[in-house]
Amino acid sequence: MSLPVQFYTLLAMIGMGSLFGATLDTYQRFLKRGTRKRLIVFLNDLLFWLIQGIIIFYVLFLVNYGELRFYLFLALLCGFSAYQALFKQIYLRLLESLIRTVKAIAKMIYRTGYLLVYKPVKGLCILLITIILYIYGLLLSLVKIVWAMVEWVLKTVFMPFVWVLKKIIPESVIEFVARSRKTIAGKLKGSKNIIIKAMNFFRKKR
């Protein structure tokens, strides 16, 4: 290697040593070893060292086509030591400030989305469901009123025929018809109770 190439390689390795120190502190800050399983920590450490080795070798390849010299390891160590002595505390403070800033921005975005998107959509859905249930209740009541009127007309018109049929039709058939009528009335009453409970539930939510 020529002297300029050696000089650039030396500076690059010193810079990579300092960068390695910063990335190591960043990695330790986010890893939180005490709260993770040993296998996860081992795999993360292995991946971290592998990535760092690839990055350093790539920079070395760009500078001097990947030629290794003993002094390059010393340059890496010097860069790492310089970071530890001069820049570590400054970098850690900047890192914590950046983390707090990102958390604050994320929290603001979440609150904005919650107030401007989630709550209006939720209120609109509740309103639509309430309207649908209310209309359903009105239609059900209207059907019951119409059915009562039809039933009254049928009773009035066909009462003589019914009286005659009772004399002709067996008692078992008459009992079956009466039971079916009670069952249908019970289901209609149950549907009305469900609608009333649902409307009260959504009113409380509002």
Rank of each mutant, 00 (worst) to 15 (best):
V143Y: 11
K187I: 03
Y136E: 13
V41D: 04
Q84A: 06
K32Y: 12
L3S: 14
N200W: 09
L92H: 01
L98Y: 15
G190C: 09
L142C: 02
P160A: 02
I14T: 12
L127N: 13
V173D: 03
W163L: 15
L154Q: 13
L43R: 08
I168D: 02
L11D: 07
P120V: 01
L138Q: 04
K204V: 00
P120K: 05
M149E: 07
K189G: 03
F201T: 10
M1I: 09
F201Q: 00
Q28D: 15
G53F: 04
G15L: 15
E171A: 15
L43D: 06
R69K: 15
C78W: 09
E171L: 05
K182R: 11
R93W: 07
M1A: 14
A148P: 01
S141R: 12
L116A: 03
L154E: 11
L133N: 03
L47R: 06
A178T: 12
P120M: 00
Y110G: 13
K205C: 08
Q84N: 11
L68C: 08
K32P: 02
I169W: 07
G17I: 01
R206A: 05
S97V: 01
K204Y: 02
F176E: 15
I174S: 02
E175C: 02
V63T: 00
I105M: 06
L139I: 11
Y110F: 15
V173K: 12
K119L: 10
W147A: 06
T26M: 03
Y27M: 04
F202R: 01
Y83F: 08
W163G: 06
I54L: 11
S2C: 05
L62N: 06
E175V: 10
G137S: 05
V102T: 09
T156N: 04
L47H: 01
V164T: 08
Y83S: 00
Y83C: 01
V164H: 04
K187M: 14
L68M: 09
S172I: 13
K189P: 01
G21W: 09
G53K: 00
M13C: 06
R206E: 06
E171T: 08
S18Q: 13
